[in-house]
C-alpha cells in the first residue's frame, strides 16, 4: 500500500475514534500533538488500526513507537509480509 493511502486511511480512523473532522497525522505526530489522544483513546486507536489492516502489533513494537511514522513503518512491514 502506498504511504499516502495508508496515511489517508489512518486519518479516517483517527477522525472516527476522536470524533473530530480534519484530523491529519504525519510521521512526526505524537500523542502530545493531538488533543484527546490519551491512554484510553490510545488503546482504542491501536485496536481499530489492527482490525482495519488485519494485523497484530507485538507489545514491544507498540512500546517502540515514538511517533506515527514508527507505527506506519511497522504497519507497512506487516502488510508486506502478508
Amino acid at each position: 500500500m502506498e504511504e499516502n493511502e495508508l496515511y489517508g486511511q489512518l486519518n479516517k480512523i483517527y477522525e472516527t475514534i476522536l470524533k473530530k473532522e480534519g484530523v491529519t497525522v504525519a510521521p512526526e505526530t505524537t500523542a502530545a500533538d493531538i488533543d484527546g489522544w490519551d491512554s484510553l483513546t490510545h488503546m482504542i486507536l491501536m485496536d481499530s488500526i489492527e482490525k482495519h489492516f488485519y494485523i497484530k502489533f507485538k507489545l514491544m513494537e507498540i512500546m517502540k513507537f515514538n511517533n506515527v511514522g514508527d507505527m506506519v513503518a511497522c504497519i507497512q512491514k506487516k502488510l508486506a509480509a502478508k
Partner: peptide, 25 residues
C-alpha cells in the same frame, strides 16, 4: 520517554482479552 498511563494501557491491551477490554470502554 512515555507517560506511565500510556505504558500501562499498552500492557493491559496486550494481556487482557480484547473483547473484555473493548466492552469496558
Amino acid at each position: 520517554g512515555m507517560a506511565s498511563s500510556m505504558i500501562k494501557s499498552n500492557l493491559f491491551m496486550y494481556h487482557t482479552d480484547r473483547e473484555v477490554l473493548m466492552k469496558a470502554v
